[in-house]
Design a protein around this nucleic acid. Structure first.
Lengths: 135, 135
DNA sequence: CGAAATCATCATATGGACATGCGCAATTCA
DNA sequence: TGAATTGCGCATGTCCATATGATGATTTCG
């Protein structure tokens, strides 16, 4: 359902949500908790930082923190950075002709419902609802 | 959302659904319609045949057909053959401890809801509802 | 029968996700 | 100021989904 990288990212966000407003968490610590390779996760966290989802602080005592409240960050915000989220425009599930809203193929409507339903959950769920410690 | 192979398979199933009870469709014809490499699709169709989802007939005039009515075949039946559908048992989204129904982590319940919701659509939708030609 | 059509299968690329290792850059603190 | 800690970034390696090409096996039909 999610790429491994995106899953690492979501887990990391959950860890950071648990310490939000409290302290920074280092790559090593996050990597140990989420079970990701240290250097690989580093690149992932770096990407999230450049996208404005995390903030980073270098030097001793440094680490990462969420750039916003965990209630304001959806799962989709995190996963979209890694898993391409664009709903295929123009190309169609049936692929025997171009297909869009104006000229939908027989499958178009139904298929959109399915993919959007799956995505809806990710959009509507905040990271805070996955921490298990706060509402 | 789906692997490319699984999507080829779904598209092929839709094509075959349109000709169900009518005639066989060859690999070449399906490949042209769904936009898949001929030999690659061949292997995919072969797998579906071995799983009992399709039937194949060799020789001139041969090809593939659905092994059952398109109303009786769900999208999940097709995709599960290629995309591993097992809901991760034992391992947990948070990954900081083993996690199952008896000892769920904070994210367990919510995450299960999300993944199951996505899958539910695939299970409950029949191939026939994607053909655009019949109910 | 023999040629053509068609599915079945194997051997081998290739591209990208995933992973690892090494060194650089910035910051803190004694 | 210099040593330790931490994030940043590059170079490389590995593995698998995807793709390609060639060949075999089976059936139809003139």
């Amino acid at each position: 359902m999610l790429s491994r990288t995106a899953e690492y990212a979501v887990r990391a966000a959950i860890v950071l949500a648990r310490h939000y407003g409290e302290r920074l968490v280092s790559t090593d610590e996050i990597a140990a908790i989420v079970g990701a390779p240290r250097n690989y996760l580093s690149k992932t966290l770096n990407t999230l930082t450049r996208r404005g989802i995390l903030v980073s602080v270098r030097g001793p005592g440094g680490g990462y923190a969420l750039a916003m409240a965990p209630t304001e960050l959806s799962i989709a915000d995190v996963t979209d950075v890694f898993d391409d989220a664009r709903i295929e425009g123009g190309r169609c599930l049936l692929a025997d002709r171009p297909c869009d809203r104006k000229h939908p193929c027989g499958a178009h409507q139904r298929w959109m419902e399915i993919t959007l339903a799956a995505r809806e959950s990710l959009v509507n769920t905040a990271i805070s609802s996955l921490t298990g410690t706060q509402p």
